[in-house]
Write a protein that binds this DNA or RNA. Structure first.
Length: 932
RNA sequence: GCCCCGGUGGUGGAAUUGGUAGACACGCAGGACUUAAAAUCCUGUGACCCGCAACGGUCGUAACGGUUCAACUCCGUUCCGGGGCACCA
């Protein structure tokens, strides 16, 4: 009886599906455990071997927890709105819903192949009106709420209105420039009231810049802009101001920081979020401005280092700030205008990454409030409008970028830190005693910070200020394939639809092309525009900011999720996904959770208790080298130095290792290269790989890159499942290395895992002899192998070290084979442990052993120390840290006894060479080291 | 540019808290079984040195430096690769 994995896997997948083996109930006496995978976008390219990595890990963990007696929720669904489907619709005229559903069907088939334990009854799809109805509903909650800084939480906007009606802006005046009394508030007209309220709403409307491509008549995603031009067509892209929706996530900055202390994310992930939020404390300082036009009176800068106020040699203002226009002198006008035009063509990313120093003097000066010195005001792209006040005071001796700027433009540098500044490089120290600093002279910099802030506040020219790098999240897209906003405009004021009008269905359109003036496709629908409905749609992250809640109660038509369900499942206990979501999805969903918590809809304010990051599986691309100027002549990697060549991606599936399959290459891409000729690795030129009886080899070049269809380096899991089975595939993905590490995919090696499963099978059945397993009492050696394995599998699984768990199984099977152990007592326990990793073969053998129930509901074996207890250990003995020999000692031995034994050892004596050791280090259960 | 992560044999990786570097696999080489192939099994496999061999020695975890009785592990500097940087998801 042999291991027929195809039959076995198909059989059990059907069986589990028919018996509802993965159905999860919201009622259970068992403790709950919620395992979640990051929401996949169902792309048209289908799954490649990189995608299931995290799903397999979470699947193993879910099944492991189930064996450990938990009620485990492990759902899956689709983040179905998104740009690619819309682009496909524009190009092929296929409705995004249609192509998305086709992609989902394909996705599902591929997932099913691998044997996951998802409860498919809980599947959600963000583009389903039954789902986005609740996304819109949550938007209404955001729109109808404000962040009360006094209570530090979201509250209904009606509380704010009540406060305005009673005491004017006294309690919550932080967003209005001029305060108002209760009477004044009541006297405001509707539009004014709404405009003030808009400044408080958690979802609000404002203006922001987008990538505008005139030639394509559309707004482009950052992704679609390459080197300042559109990816499609290479047209120029400039920034354009458009009305946009935003989420006021900045109000949650402190709570997002605080929450990090209560959740298990990796330190690096917490660091990334902390840096993104970018909390800093310092001061805002107003500088008097002296300019030709004289219209601008003051320049407000934000600095974290007010102590360096006497080291300010110039100011830098973000070029897009309005005040630049007023500050430029007649003499500098042309230079400034030219620079502004240049900056307009630059993306924020390019500006930040630019090493080349650029900037222009405006012609205006700022006055140092303490010593009256005139400071030139420059503009430069390295200062961004969105951070702080969009203007900085530059201190070259203390800041590297300022220093380079000063050097480049020959701006004299004032040294306020004495010997700490060497004239060559800036020094950001806070430990220097200040010099050239007027009333601060001789003061330690870190102490001077407070002194200066107090003085600024005293003189009324500055305030203490906490700043955040994080900005409010842009929440609208000028696209079709997203959730419509439940918002109606009346005379320029936005009003929410009522809950009873939800879902506001995404209307059908004739064309998916953009609307006029950068508006989305919805602006092309007369009825939509006539009703003054919002023409923007929500961004991709809207639906994914709360999907983990919907899984708890997916069919609920009354609520987004009942409080009972969310109280039962609570936080996601384990969330597995990539670091690429570090500062996007993971922050947005944390914010939404906090808002829903504040408003009382759920009982916890952090969505994820523990996050495990999965590494990215990269592709190992293969290249052929086309000789420049030819269409069909290729040179092998070893010979390419002698030619001028163009590397061309070639499908990794027609390359064996590095050797190109010449025949397959000629058939590839519908015979595009059918007439190809080659310079082979040995230098022979031929159109065929056999010359007489000589075999010619064409060797490909290689590079590790992102796995992507366009690079022809994708490997389809279906092919591997078909060839080796799902169990082998699952285990091999885990065996590749730690889940959290990125690594290139290499199919070589999967044989080893497949062999392991065959070897496991042979402990039970032999092709010739038939049944091997027997009901016999296990001996000590066998029990030791089993319990060593139980301990390690349990530990490794618990700490997500699935690769070492797989090797532990291999070791156990190797050892049991060596012991010729086929005893049911041992094998049965081994199978239960293997179930999370290789469920199909485990279930099959479990049944063959005569068990009636499903192995999915078995209990994880219990580790017993007594079977693995050792009384002695072979200690490595090192002289000066270098291992020289090994001595076996009892475990309960004392330091004195160790010394006595070790100093009598022949090898040790040889190395001591008559000398007395200075010290004998004995670490129990580890090693012995003699210091000479 | 800024933030985060990684770099160990020919390859993927192991070494969980600073304590025997290379577990487990792949590949390769040799052998057994077989008419043959597949499958399976056995042996060897970091580099270098001495040697007939057993054995023994030196080096070795990207590079350099440091801390320590002891460093893949901690600290500093540099190089290389990957992810993110606010409209890909």
């Amino acid at each position: 009886m042999e291991y027929k994995f195809r039959e076995i896997e198909k059989k059990w997948q059907q069986h589990w599906s028919q018996t509802g083996a993965y159905k999860v109930s919201n009622e259970s006496s068992k403790p709950k455990f919620y395992v979640l995978d990051m929401f996949p976008y169902p792309s048209g390219a289908g799954l490649h071997v990189g995608h299931p990595l995290g799903y397999i890990a979470s699947d193993i963990f879910s099944r492991f927890k189930r064996l450990k007696g938990y009620n485990v929720l492990h759902p899956m669904g689709y983040d179905a709105f998104g740009l690619p489907a819309e682009q496909y619709a524009i190009e092929h005229g296929v409705h995004p819903a249609v192509s998305t559903d086709a992609n989902i069907a394909n996705f599902r088939k591929q997932l099913d192949n691998i044997g996951f334990c998802f409860d498919w009854d809980r599947q959600v799809k963000t583009s389903d009106p039954q789902y986005y109805k609740w996304t819109q509903w949550i938007f209404l909650q955001l729109f109808n709420s404000f962040f009360n800084r006094k209570t530090q939480k979201a509250e209904p906007i009606s509380n704010l209105i009540a406060s305005f009606e009673q005491e004017g802006s006294a309690a919550h005046g932080y967003r209005v420039t001029t305060g108002f009394s209760a009477e004044e508030w009541k006297a405001f007209d509707e539009a004014t009231k709404q405009s003030i309220l808009m400044d408080y709403r958690l979802a609000y409307c404002g203006y922001g810049e987008v990538n505008w491509c005139e030639a394509l008549g559309t707004v482009l995603a950052n992704d679609e802009v390459v080197n300042g031009v559109s990816e499609r067509g290479g047209h120029p892209v400039v920034k354009k101001k458009l009305r946009q929706w935003y989420l006021r996530i900045t109000e949650y900055a402190d709570r997002l920081l605080e929450g990090l202390e209560r959740i298990e994310f990796s330190d690096s992930m917490k660091e990334m979020q902390t840096n993104w939020i970018g909390k800093s404390s310092g001061a805002e300082i107003d500088f008097e401005v002296k300019s030709e036009k004289g219209t601008v009176k003051t320049l407000r800068v934000y600095t974290t280092r007010p102590d360096t106020i006497f080291g300010v040699d110039f100011m830098v203002v973000a070029p897009e700030l309005d005040i630049v226009e007023d500050m430029k002198s007649a003499e500098q006008a042309t230079a400034v205008d030219e620079y502004l035009a240049y900056v307009k063509s630059r993306s924020e990313r390019e500006r930040m990454a630019e090493k080349k120093i650029s900037g222009v003097f405006t012609g205006a000066y700022a006055i140092n409030p303490f010593n009256g010195q005139e400071i030139p005001i420059w503009i430069s792209e390295y200062v961004l409008a969105g951070y702080g006040t969009g203007a900085i005071m530059a201190v070259p001796c203390g800041d590297e970028r300022d220093h380079k700027f000063a050097r480049h433009f020959n701006i004299p540098i004032t040294n306020i830190i004495g010997k700490y500044y060497d004239g060559e490089e800036a020094n950001a120290t806070k430990d220097a005693l200040l010099e050239n600093s007027d009333f601060l002279n001789g003061m330690l910099m870190r102490d001077a910070i407070e002194v200066v802030i107090n003085k600024l506040e005293e003189k009324g020219i500055g305030i203490r200020k906490t700043n955040y790098k994080m900005r409010d999240a842009a929440f609208s897209r000028q696209r079709y394939w997203g959730e419509p906003f439940p918002v109606q405009w009346k005379n320029g004021t936005a009003y929410p639809l009522s809950e009873t009008e939800l879902p506001l269905l995404l209307p059908e359109v004739e064309s998916y092309s953009p609307g006029p003036e950068g508006e989305g496709p919805l602006a092309n629908i007369p009825e939509w525009v006539a009703k003054e409905l919002e023409t923007n749609t929500m961004p991709g992250y809207a639906g994914s900011s709360w999907y983990f809640l919907r899984y708890m109660d997916p069919q609920n038509n009354e609520e987004f999720c009942s409080r009972k369900a969310s109280d039962y499942w609570g936080q996601v206990d384990l969330y597995i996904g990539g670091t690429e979501h570090a500062v996007g999805h993971l922050l947005y969903s944390r914010m939404w959770t906090k808002v829903l918590f504040d408003l009382g809809y759920i009982g916890h304010d952090e969505p994820y208790k523990k996050l495990v990051n999965q590494g990215m599986i990269q592709g190992s691309s293969r290249f052929v080298y086309r000789i420049a100027g030819t269409t069909n002549q290729f040179v092998s990697a070893g010979q390419k130095a002698g030619y001028d060549v163009q590397p061309i991606h070639v499908d990794v599936n027609i390359v064996d290792g590095y050797e190109l399959d010449i025949e397959a290459f000629k058939k590839w891409r519908n015979g595009e290269y059918a007439d190809a000729e080659f310079v082979f690795e040995d230098g022979t030129f031929s159109a065929s790989c056999s010359l007489g009886n000589q075999e010619l080899k064409y060797i490909c070049g290689s590079e590790v890159e992102k796995m992507s269809k366009s690079k022809f380096n994708t490997v389809n899991p279906d092919d591997l499942v078909n060839k080796y089975g799902a169990d082998t595939f699952r285990m091999y993905e885990m065996f590749l290395g730690p889940v959290e590490i990125s690594k290139p995919w290499d199919t070589k090696g999967i044989e080893g895992v497949h062999r392991f499963l065959k070897k496991l099978w042979r402990l039970f059945y032999d092709d010739v002899k038939g049944q091997l397993w027997k009901e016999e009492k296990a001996n000590d050696a066998e029990l030791k192998v089993l319990h060593k394995c139980i301990k390690k599998i349990e530990d490794d699984t618990e700490r997500f070290s699935f690769n070492t768990a797989v090797s532990t199984f291999m070791i156990a099977v190797n050892e049991l084979s060596d012991l010729k152990c086929s005893k049911k007592e041992i094998l049965e326990q081994l199978l239960i442990m293997l179930t999370p990793y290789a469920p199909h073969v485990s279930e099959e053998l479990w049944g063959l052993l005569g068990n009636s129930g499903s192995i999915l509901d078995a209990s994880f074996p219990k580790f017993e120390e007594k079977y693995v207890k050792e009384s002695a250990k072979a200690y490595p003995v090192a002289i000066n840290g270098k291992t020289r020999t090994e001595i076996t000692l009892a475990l309960d031995i004392t330091q004195q006894e160790v010394e006595a034994i070790v100093l009598k050892d022949e090898v040790v004596l040889k190395w001591l060479d008559g000398k007395q050791p200075k010290k004998v280090i004995y670490v129990k259960n580890k090693m012995i080291n003699l210091v000479v």
